[in-house]
Every structure is written in C-alpha cells, then in structure tokens.
Design a protein around this nucleic acid. Structure first.
Lengths: 154, 154
DNA sequence: CTGGATAAGTTCGGTTTTTAAATCCAGCCT
DNA sequence: AGGCTGGATTTAAAAACCGAACTTATCCAG
C-alpha cells in the first residue's frame, strides 16, 4: 500500500507533458476502439463500422485524424472482381501502442472481469504461460512498481 | 514490419472484451488526465481543477464515476485550523494503472515529442538508467513484441 | 450499354454531452 | 454573527454525437 505523497500540482504541467498530448490524440472512446480493432487486423471502413457500431460520420473523422497523425496509413486494396478501395493499416507508430492496449486489456481482466476467465490472453510464442505488462530496466529485467522513481528534466 | 493479417471482425467482440470495458470507464480525455494527476499525488478537488482546467461540473462527475468504480477512494483530510474535506486517493485498482500511463507517456515522448528531450523519465531506485514499459513472462524476463501471441478462451 | 450491387464516404436533422460561469452550501475561523 | 473556503449544483450556449438517408464510383450481369 505504498502511498503517493500529496502534491498540489503535478511536476510536469499537462500542456508540456507528452502523456497529455497522447491523451489528446487517442484518449477517446471511439479512437481507442478503432485502434483495438486495427490491432486485431481490421482494416476496412465498413468492418470498423460494424465492429464498433459507431456513426459513420464519427468513424470517418477519427480515421482521418489517425491518418493525419501517422498512426494509420491509408493504402488501397483490390479484391479480385471488385473495385479498389482504401484500407487503413497500422504504421509503426500505431503498432507500438500494442503493449499499452494489451496492458489495459489485462487491467480490465483483473479488475473489471467479474471473476470470469478473460476471453483472450497473451503468451510468449511457443510457451503456454501468460505474460503481463511491467517495467524493465535496460537489461530487460523487471523493475517492481515500488522501485520506480520519476526523474525530471530529461 | 510484421503485418497483422486482415480480419473482418476482431476475435473478441467489444462488448465481452474487458479492454472495451476499460475504455468505457477511463477512455476519455478528462478521466485519463485525472488519473495522471492522481498518480503524481494530486488529491483535492480544487487541485485537480486548477491542474486540468476542466469545468467543475465535469470534474465532479468524473470523480464520482471513478469512486464508484473503485479506482479512487474518498477519504477525508483535515488541515489544522481548517474544516475536514474529502480527498481522492488512488486505490490498488487505480495504482495498478501506473504502468499503462507511464507506457503511454513514453509512447508520447517517442512519437509526439518533436525531438525534444522528455520532461520526465523513470528509473529504478538507486539507478540512473531509464526503465520502460514492456512485457515479462512469469519469471520477470522481457518478452519482445514480436514474440507475443494471443490465445482465445481463457 | 444499361441496370444493379457494393463499399466508402457525406449530408442532414434532432438529441445528448460539454462547457463556462454563476450560484449555492456547509463548516471552521475570528 | 459574519466572512472565508473548498466543494458541488444549476443554467444556458456551444459542441459533439447519433441514425438514417443520400451520393459517388466502380465492377458485373444481361
């Protein structure tokens, strides 16, 4: 139960913090659900739409925003006998959100799952035991939460 | 450039997925910023308000939601010579979001920081080298992103 | 060549949320 | 008592959201 000491203000004001920028960009319901679907392999407008059940107008705007920000790349696919259509593929930037969304999935499994077995879990390739989100040092060794220290200014 | 294979639907529909539940709960701009501040040690209504600059009515509603969900605990503090007031302290559930928010901070540093040095970073206590969010197996050893495999049904 | 099917968006109203500002409220202080 | 202060609620305007219908462009069948 390591308490965080009381402060009146966070050490980094929200407008210079990159977390705040990230929240601005992807911190809304639909955008996160779009990224979730994209990480599972969804790429097409109508597939996103029927997966999310959101208004097409909202989807259209969000996809545009994600493409502008470079998380998604708009390419073109052509099913044989069909006309070419755009598809939205994750870029390296978007792909690098995967650990975060998996971490959030596991957080949800742990606290929001009402005791049910999680519908999806994650393992290392070729292994059966589950992996989890955590911190590691430069050598890839785990750092426990109470060992973490923030350092200001670079 | 490991491509994710195309699918028309994600393997776990959003309404049974705990990620979707998590997004429902904390996936909006203000809630995430509240949690950010709370993780830095902010606890009081007016401190949250002046930190975020959000409408008090929204803050009030969001705090209530987070308390109901068990991420925050409403306690009471009393400065000497002042009346008792509530403070909003992170519970174990809320605290366990820390890796995710730090991960998102670092994602923002990497992609949204425009080449500037990050204003805040994190180290292991007593060390100077940075830590980062990652995945570990049961033994606490890092699992690289391309080694991660989803497994359905528990 | 014409008509139908299909996927990707856009347009258009009406409804719900946000926002910002003013107001209320309770308790400790002098 | 009366002011002060930290929270919370009310209100009206602005913004975002929603669903359904509509547009556009291409391919295919007849």
């Amino acid at each position: 139960m390591s308490q965080i000491p009381l402060v009146r203000r966070s050490p980094v004001p929200p407008d210079t913090c990159n977390l705040a920028k990230a929240i601005d960009l992807i911190g809304d319901r639909w955008t996160l659900l779009i990224l979730r679907a994209a990480l599972y392999g969804v790429r097409r407008f109508d597939d996103f739409q029927s997966e999310l059940g959101c208004p097409r107008t909202v989807l259209s705007g969000r996809l545009k925003k994600l493409v502008d920000a470079g998380l998604l790349t708009k390419k073109s696919y052509k099913a044989p006998g069909k006309r070419a259509r755009p598809e939205y593929v994750l870029s390296a930037i978007g792909l690098s959100l995967r650990p975060i969304l998996i971490g959030l999935t596991q957080w949800g499994d742990a606290w929001l799952g009402q005791g049910e077995a999680p519908p999806i879990s994650f393992t290392r390739a070729g292994s059966k035991s589950a992996i989890r989100a955590a911190f590691v040092d430069v050598e890839g060794r785990e750092v426990r939460p109470d060992q973490i220290r923030p350092v200001l200014r670079g």
